[in-house]
Design a protein around this nucleic acid. Sequence first.
DNA 1: AAAAGTACCTTGCGATACAAGGTATTATAA
DNA 2: TTATAATACCTTGTATCGCAAGGTACTTTT
Lengths: 107, 107
Amino acid sequence: MNTDNTKSQMRKGMLEYCIMLLLHQQSCYANDIIQRLQEAEMIVMEGTLYPLLSRLKNDGLLGYEWRESTQGPPRKYYTLTADGQEALSQLDASWEEISRTVNFLKS
Amino acid sequence: MNTDNTKSQMRKGMLEYCIMLLLHQQSCYANDIIQRLQEAEMIVMEGTLYPLLSRLKNDGLLGYEWRESTQGPPRKYYTLTADGQEALSQLDASWEEISRTVNFLKS
DNA sequence: AAAAGTACCTTGCGATACAAGGTATTATAA
DNA sequence: TTATAATACCTTGTATCGCAAGGTACTTTT
């Protein structure tokens, strides 16, 4: 059965949204994001996350700043920009639409 | 802004699930599916749908039968198989999980 | 016969998650 | 003091999949 594949596909498109939701609450660096999403039962791989963050930054939706760490190399903390917050609002709407669609089809 | 792109990504993984939800209610041929999903505010293109249906059929989740039409060539009506219903149950669970995740992150 | 409508399918492209591997900086241990 | 481990960032190659565009075949209408 390739249900795992489909399940992975379902989560795929949500990743960007979930990460922006996270960053809406507070600035994070990569490992923060991975851990927090894991707590929320959403798995993300490093090789997925770094390019995604770079992409969002290049699109102007995220900014970042370096911060020293007491336990290793400095970390890149990402934050939602104003554009990012606007985009997040639109994704909220998209999520609502998809939710409505699924619930409509389930009934 | 590439919000449209992200939105499309979000829908990506849901398509398969939505189509199986539809076929759980009744057998459909391609245009049925396109129309019904449109009513549910989910757009699907032909070039997306046909390969998707073939894939699900090859995975044993769908079966089909030809039926005559009064208004043109015969139509391929797809139906969920037993395996398909089982897979759908698992996707229901996946959807619940994703829903929980998003709502958790939104709070 | 020719044109329009309906239905199925394929090809080429772009986007993206993931696995694996790579580089650099800092902390720890020998 | 040097070697190893840990932390953190990033890149490359592969597979999947939605989408736009184009193609074939059958049926109905003109």
